[in-house]
Nucleic acid binder design. Structure first.
Lengths: 153, 153
DNA sequence: GATGAAACATCAAGATC
DNA sequence: GATCTTGATGTTTCATC
C-alpha cells in the first residue's frame, strides 16, 4: 500500500472536512473528478480511509465532563483480559481504552455529563468486572485540544 | 436548544456513519427527506452537529504508537498557561490535551510512528516551553477501544 | 410532505504523458 | 502503462410549492 503526495493531501483534507464535494476535493489537489474519485475508492478499499463520521459538540449536549480511569489488576491471564474487554468496551461512556505499559494495566477515557454521572458510571464499571486491585480516576478541568486528524508527515 | 428523540436518533446515526445519504438517513428514523433535511440544517446551525470528518487507520499509516505525556509546572500564571497552549496545540502529534485536576497539571495524548519518533517529539516539546518541573510519559501497548461517538443517552 | 431543477457522484471510452 | 480528460447517466440535495 503506497501513498503518494496526492493521496496524503486527499487524506489530510478529508480528515479536516469529509463533507467536501468531489469537485472541490479534486480541485484542491489539482485533479479532475474522475482520477480523484478513483483514488478515493482505492483509499477506501485499502482501509486507510476507514469511515466518515459526524463530530458533535459535547458542551451543547451537556457531556463535557471528561475523566480518565486508571486500572490495576491482579489477574493477568488471557481469560481475564477477554472478560475485561467484553465488560468495558460496550459502555458508551468509554470513549477510549488502552492496555498500558507501566504502573497501571489499563487506562480509559470516559465522557459523561458531570461528577454524579461519572460516579454512576464508576459503580457500573466496578460491579461489572472483578479482579480490579486498584482503580484511580483523574479529571479534566479544561480541554485544550481534541483532534481526530492523524499527523500525516 | 431542545433535542427530541428523532434528533438524537439522527445524531446517533451520523456519529457512526456520516456518509449516509439523506434518503437512507430519513428512512432510518421514519421520516421523508424534507423534514429530515430541515432537522439536519437546524442541527448544523445550532452547532451540535459540528463537522464531518474522515477517520483513518493509524496502523496502515504506520502511526500506531500512542503515548500519554503528563506534565507538572511550577508556573501557574495565566501568562505561562497561554504560552503553554500556544506551544503545544500546534504539534500535529498531539491529538488531545487537557488541563487536569490532581497530581499533574496537564496531560496529552500523542500519536506517532514508534519510540524513536516519540523521542524526537519529546525533545521538540520540552525545548519549546520552559517551566516544566516534571514530564512523565506512559505508553499504550494495545488499543482496546477508540470512538468519537458521544453517549447520547 | 411532494415535486422537480440544479448539483453531484459514478463510470465508460478514449486522450495524454 | 499508469494517469488523466471528457462526457453521458443515474443519484442526491435542497428550495418552492
Amino acid at each position: 500500500m503506497h501513498l503518494d503526495k496526492v493521496d496524503k493531501a486527499l487524506l489530510a483534507r478529508l480528515q479536516e472536512d469529509a463533507s467536501l464535494s468531489l469537485a472541490d476535493l479534486a480541485e484542491s489537489v489539482n485533479l479532475t473528478t474522475t482520477p480523484c474519485w478513483k483514488r478515493l475508492k482505492r483509499l477506501e478499499e485499502s482501509g486507510v480511509l476507514r469511515k466518515r463520521v459526524a463530530l458533535l459538540d459535547p458542551a451543547i449536549l451537556g457531556l463535557s465532563f471528561t475523566a480518565f480511569v486508571h486500572i490495576k489488576t491482579s489477574d493477568h491471564s488471557e481469560d481475564w483480559y477477554q472478560r475485561f474487554v467484553d465488560a468495558v468496551t460496550p459502555f458508551d461512556e468509554v470513549m477510549e481504552c488502552y492496555r498500558m505499559a507501566g504502573e497501571y494495566d489499563y487506562m480509559m477515557k470516559v465522557q459523561v455529563a458531570d461528577m454524579p454521572a461519572f460516579d454512576l458510571f464508576y459503580k457500573k464499571l466496578v460491579n461489572s468486572i472483578d479482579g480490579l486491585t486498584n482503580v484511580t480516576s483523574t479529571f479534566a478541568m479544561e480541554p485544550l485540544k481534541y483532534t481526530t486528524a492523524l499527523p500525516l508527515v
